[in-house]
Design a protein around this nucleic acid. Structure first.
Lengths: 162, 162
DNA sequence: TGCAAGTAGTCAATAGACTTGACTATCATG
DNA sequence: CATGATAGTCAAGTCTATTGACTACTTGCA
């Protein structure tokens, strides 16, 4: 027996919810985020893009059909520039992205999707859009818009803590 | 110059949004989730619980003021039982949790919060509640309720892909 | 011009969390 | 009491992110 237990047994009872109350926002957000990510991941796997790393969909979406400076992708990702650099390197290595030097600034690079990257991006966007459409069918256009406004408010509140 | 660049420059322009359209749900969820997590993390750091791992708040909330079987915490976390076991081990080691053997079943363990764990749990819950209340001030009670319903719909849709 | 300071990005090492595969101990069923 | 299932751990490896230090380039100012 490896875990070190003390001898005293616990006292309280497991609480069971009397009413079907709504869970806290934090839990809902966590689970909803996971659900969307899983849905997108499933679509990617089926389409032959299983080697796209977890943050890949985010980069692909940020690039959409166009291009963007490396630095912008970094700042949108919300991770350290080193982590973003590694991710970009991986995506380049796996054929999703191309890197172009900025002609005006020798330090900078521009990122653009390859054909494969665009295809994967299409899968990401359509999977997300499909789920969003299904939610809209249930919640209605107004409900979805309201929900998005609330999410934007949450994001804004969070940004206020620095 | 380490990155391998090709010589051809990119063709398209960076698109800029003409209208302040709402971002896709997937992006909003990602960012909102991060905002909440950051907010909670900040509160924990300030309260002296900086050593709580990222998934710690979730476990603490799952335990609330009571106790729960290890297996239930595992299934709710949505990760492998090994990962959950590591997390629990860490939380025990850092004084947030205690493990008690189940008197009826020698294989099972019950988890309960220590005093420190309850304090940290209080911080987590109050930080989350504070943010939720602030959002409710902006969006209104109806808006928040609607948003939660939408999130639950998203979670349910995701569960349908297996 | 030329130097100082700031910015873009990389390198290297590491930490942290999760995964798979194999295993032990206990319980339930016949 | 033997077989199979379940709870949980051990061990090893992977993957992602972090920190700290560094190079290369640009900008601004004298």
């Amino acid at each position: 027996m490896t875990p070190s237990n003390s001898e005293r047994p616990p006292e309280h009872e497991l609480r069971e919810p009397d009413e079907p109350q709504q869970p806290p926002l934090s839990v809902l957000l966590r689970n909803a985020r996971r659900a969307v990510a899983d849905h997108v991941r499933l679509a990617l796997d089926e389409a032959g893009f299983a080697d796209l790393p977890p943050n890949g969909p985010f980069v692909l979406s940020a690039l959409a059909f166009g291009q963007a400076p490396h630095s912008e992708v970094i700042s949108r990702l919300g991770v350290s520039k080193q982590a973003a650099g590694q991710l970009v390197e991986t995506l380049v290595g796996r054929g999703y992205l191309e890197r172009f030097p900025d002609p005006a600034d020798g330090r900078r690079f521009t990122l653009a999707l390859t054909v494969r990257g665009e295809r994967a991006g299409t899968v990401v966007r359509s999977a997300a859009a499909q789920l969003e459409a299904a939610v809209e069918d249930i919640a209605g256009a107004d409900g979805l818009r309201t929900a998005k406004q609330v999410l934007e408010a949450v994001i804004e509140m969070g940004a206020m803590d620095e």
